[in-house]
Amino acid sequence: MLLQKLGLILVSSALINNVVLSQFLGLCPFLGVSKNTKTAAGMGAAVIFVITISSIFTWLIFNYILVPLGLNYLQTIVFIMVIAALVQLVEMILKKTSPALYKSLGVFLPLITTNCAVLGVALSNVQNGFGLPKSVAYGFCSALGFTIAIVLMAGIREKTENCESIPKVFRGTPCVLLISGLMAIAFTGFAGIV
């Protein structure tokens, strides 16, 4: 029963309601860090870590501090603060453990702070009134959806980068935007699963 529930959350948040391709959250890193599959996977891993941990902390802070004090309206500012701190923490850990990944992510690592997918997931957890386990599962699966999207995108971009048959005017960013549009259309196909 639990497994069934988990599977449902996985499919619905990672594929059907994919953060990037159907909710249009987190487009900045999706377009910015998708030049190389390895970097994209690293970015995805960092986002999974930040979203999962931030789901726990934002849920705890919302339900045990903000709700009892009647300060629900402060959710956005407090969540941003928690997320920013977590990103700093991830940055320190990466700098210590994997300098190569730290370098290749470059400026996009601190930019996870402003990645609206992170805040979006935290806010929708709270708005939908999920419990703690469901929030964490939902956060993890949404981030997994982000990773799937960005890695797929990086793979396609690597293939099309040196493609001679693409007209000169479409190379680079225009092509990337077209690809993401087509991917979004393709992902609507998952809506039939559930």
Partner: peptide, 11 residues
């Protein structure tokens, strides 16, 4: 004051 305190202490 309450809002300031909560945000301040969290920070």
């Amino acid at each position: 004051l309450k809002a300031m305190l909560v945000v301040g202490i969290t920070g």
